[in-house]
């Protein structure tokens, strides 16, 4: 068994490889995505004089917070070998449920906040139950939920935006303690917790193992069905949180909120190094991916590019990211 490891042959590993392995092992970030982010930011800074400013930086983070939370959900589901296409619709449904509970029922803010997240979790639970108990493929179940949740949001709101959330609730979306927008604080806090959960706990390790080789995980005594059920419920709850951030920021429950956000969220997760087919994923990587999407959208806005083109750009980036990922998998793996 002689070693055919390329990193152990010839010259000492170069700086790129060393940095790469440290980043991957310690922080689970792919070096390529950091480079893409830097190149993108530099390009934008050259093209637009408004790009490099503290207020614009906050704008980017604020715009990224909703997508970022959805991308965290996408990371968990994808790396467990699943798929959740209902992220954006469930986010819209949750925002409407929260606004309806707060405005139409006049419930106090804490109740409305819990209701928002619970609505998302419930949708996720339904996804998980149908996938694990009825054995319908995740692609179909969550595609169905994409339609059901969006329709339900329109039914509950009667197709109209629900305005006038209570002040305390709006603070979650518009408050700025120490000048930092509340959604950014909530987004970063969520990311830290979810990163630790994925990278450093048995739950996280099992999530990756299930996505990697379901049979191996089952042989190792992991309860796959229960784990998947938790993952989809978690994904729904995070979509609910994204709905809460969005609704409180625009001070209304909009039934069309989050339309096509699943596209951006899944793209961000994959740019960040999540394997589309499961087994690999990291929240820090996804944060970089979400920032790339945020900078891209912000830059295109500053350059006054029509939003129709932005949609095309995101779609193209998704396909490109998966192409690069698959190319690397083919290069690295001998299986």
């Amino acid at each position: 068994m002689t070693s055919t490891d390329p990193t152990q042959q010839g010259a000492a590993p170069n700086l790129w490889m060393r940095t790469h392995s440290v980043l991957i092992e310690r922080l689970h970030i792919r070096l390529e995505s950091l480079v893409v982010l830097l190149v993108l930011a530099t390009t934008m800074a050259i093209l637009s004089p408004y790009f490099l400013s503290v207020s614009n930086f906050m704008n980017i983070l604020l715009a990224t917070s909703t997508i970022g939370v959805l991308a965290i959900a996408a990371t968990y589901v994808l790396s467990s070998g699943g798929l959740d296409l209902s992220l954006g619709s469930v986010m819209g449904l949750s925002g409407v449920v929260g606004a309806a509970v707060a405005v139409k029922l006049g419930a106090p803010t804490p109740v409305a906040v819990v209701a928002t997240i619970a609505a998302g979790a419930a949708a996720g639970l339904v996804n998980g139950l149908v996938i694990t108990r009825a054995f319908v493929p995740a692609f179909i179940v969550t595609l169905g939920m994409l339609g059901i949740a969006r329709g339900l949001a329109l039914v509950i709101s009667d197709g109209r935006v629900i305005y006038g959330l209570p002040k305390a609730m709006v603070y979650l979306g518009q408050g700025r303690p120490m000048g930092i927008p509340m959604p950014v604080i909530i987004f970063l806090g969520t990311a830290v917790v979810m990163h630790i959960l994925l990278a450093y706990t048995r739950f996280g390790r099992h999530t990756l193992a299930i996505g990697d080789n379901e049979n191996a995980a089952r042989t190792a005594g992991i309860n796959i069905e229960r784990h998947r059920l938790i993952i989809y419920t978690l994904s729904g709850a995070l979509s609910g949180l994204a709905g809460l951030l969005f609704a409180t920021r625009i001070n209304s429950g909009d039934p069309t909120a989050g339309l096509t956000y699943e596209l951006t969220a899944i793209t961000a997760a994959i740019i960040g190094g999540t394997n589309l087919f499961g087994g690999r994923g990291s929240i820090l990587g996804t944060m970089i991916g979400a920032l790339i999407m945020g900078v891209l959208q912000n830059g295109l806005n500053l350059l006054a590019v029509q939003s129709y083109y932005q949609q095309m750009a995101i779609g193209a980036v998704l396909v490109l990211a998966v192409f690069i990922d698959q190319w690397q998998v083919r290069k690295e793996s001998r299986v």
């Binding site: 048995r202 390790r205 990756l208 193992a209 990697d212 191996a216 190792a220 005594g221 299986v335």
Partner: peptide
């Protein structure tokens, strides 16, 4: 072999009982 191919050696050896 029932190995999780994207995980490292330790993760595979201790899978399910980390």
């Amino acid at each position: 072999l029932a190995l999780a191919r994207q995980q490292d050696v330790a993760a595979n050896i201790f899978l399910g009982r980390e």
